[in-house]
C-alpha cells in the first residue's frame, strides 16, 4: 500500500468532511441560511476520481452536491465558505451559493442531471477542435431518471464523445429509495445507449484512484465515452432540513461500518492522522473565520436595470 498517497488522499477527504460538518454547524447555529447538500460518506469518490484531472485540459461538471468535487479539485476552502455565506470573496462572488459553482474548467448547477447535455457539448467541442482532455461528469442516482440524462447518454453514444460519466449512487433520491422508482437497471440503460459500463463499490480511495486512472487513460486515448457507477452512501441528510427518516437500516449499518474515510484513517499511522487532522481543522477554521469577515457584494454593482 502506498502510504504517502493514502495520506494525501486522506487529507483531502478529511478536508471535505470537516468542511461539510462545519457547514452543518453553521446552519444549526443560524449563521448560514438557505439550503445546502452535503456529501459526507462520499468523499472518497471525489478525491479518488479527481486526483487524475489535468486542470488545463479536462473539464469537470458537478451536481447540486458538489462541495466535495470542488474541494477535491481546488482545495479552496475560503472561496467555498465565502460562497456559502454569500460573500463577495466567494467562488462566484456570492451569486450562486452552495449549488452553483464555476471555477476554471469546473461547473455545476442545481438541476439534477442538468449539466449532462452541456457536458456532451464540451466533449464534442474538444473532438471538433482536436483538443486533448476528457469531460468528467458527476451525477446522482436521482438524476438517472431525468430525461436530459438519458438524452445526454444517447448523444455521447451517437457522437462518440470523450465523456466519462461518474454516477455516485448513494441509494436515495432525496428521501425516496431510488430502486423503488426506477424501471429496469442503470446498467441495462447505459449499455442500451452503446456505452461501456463499469460498476464499483466505493470503499477504498486507493482502489477508486486506481480504477479511475485506468478508465481515464482509456478515454484519453480512445476519445470514446465510458460510464462508471460507484455504489456509495450519504451519511448525512439530503439537505440541511432532512431528518433522514427514510433510511434503510441494513444499508445504514453497512456503510456506517464501512465508511471509506474511516477505512483510510485506520490504515494510516496514528501520528500521521493526528498531524493531518490538526492541520485541516486549523485550515478550515481559519477559512471560515476569514469568510465571516469578508464583505457582501455591492447591490449597486450587481443589480442593474436594462434597457
Amino acid at each position: 500500500m502506498n502510504l504517502d498517497l493514502l495520506a494525501r488522499f486522506y487529507e483531502r477527504m478529511f478536508l471535505i468532511r470537516t468542511f461539510e460538518q462545519t457547514v452543518e454547524a453553521y446552519f444549526a447555529r443560524g449563521q448560514m441560511r438557505g439550503t445546502t447538500h452535503g456529501s459526507i460518506g462520499q468523499e472518497a469518490i471525489a478525491v479518488g476520481v479527481l486526483s487524475h484531472v489535468h486542470p488545463d485540459e479536462d473539464f469537470v461538471t458537478g451536481t447540486h452536491r458538489s462541495h466535495g468535487h470542488f474541494l477535491a479539485l481546488t482545495g479552496r476552502v475560503f472561496e467555498l465558505a465565502s460562497e456559502l455565506m454569500g460573500k463577495k470573496t466567494g467562488v462566484i462572488h456570492g451569486r450562486g451559493g452552495s449549488q452553483h459553482l464555476a471555477f476554471g474548467n469546473f461547473l455545476t448547477n442545481g438541476i439534477t442531471g442538468g449539466m449532462l447535455p452541456s457536458a456532451v457539448g464540451v466533449a464534442l467541442a474538444k473532438k471538433l477542435k482536436g483538443e486533448p482532455g476528457v469531460v468528467i461528469s458527476f451525477l446522482g442516482d436521482g438524476g438517472m431518471n431525468e430525461g436530459h440524462t438519458l438524452e445526454a447518454l444517447n448523444l455521447a453514444g451517437a457522437f462518440q464523445t470523450p465523456n466519462i460519466f461518474v454516477l455516485e449512487n448513494n441509494h436515495y433520491a432525496m428521501s425516496t429509495v431510488t430502486e423503488r422508482v426506477t424501471g429496469g437497471t442503470f446498467e441495462s440503460r447505459v449499455r442500451g445507449f452503446g456505452l461501456p459500463y463499469v460498476r464499483h463499490r466505493a470503499l477504498d480511495v486507493l482502489e477508486i484512484h486506481r480504477l479511475f486512472g485506468e478508465i481515464y487513460q482509456r478515454v484519453r486515448e480512445t476519445r470514446r465515452p465510458v460510464f462508471l457507477e460507484f455504489e456509495t452512501y450519504r451519511l448525512c441528510g439530503h439537505s440541511k432540513s432532512d431528518k433522514r427518516e427514510y433510511v434503510v437500516p441494513e444499508l445504514e449499518a453497512y456503510w456506517r461500518e464501512n465508511d471509506p474515510l474511516l477505512r483510510a484513517r485506520r490504515a494510516l499511522p496514528e501520528e500521521t492522522v493526528r498531524e493531518i487532522e490538526e492541520r485541516v481543522r486549523r485550515q478550515v477554521a481559519e477559512a471560515f473565520r476569514r469568510a465571516e469577515e469578508a464583505p457582501f457584494p455591492d447591490p449597486a454593482e450587481e443589480l442593474k436595470p436594462r434597457p
Binding site: 473539464f59 457539448g121 464540451v122 466533449a123 464534442l124 467541442a125 474538444k126 436530459h148 445526454a152 444517447n154
Partner: peptide, 19 residues
C-alpha cells in the same frame, strides 16, 4: 437526434469551449 434538450445543451457546452 430529435432532442431539443440535447441540441441546446450541446450548444451551451460548445460555447463554453470557445466555439
Amino acid at each position: 437526434p430529435l432532442d431539443e434538450n440535447g441540441i441546446l445543451g450541446m450548444a451551451a457546452g460548445m460555447a463554453l469551449m470557445g466555439l
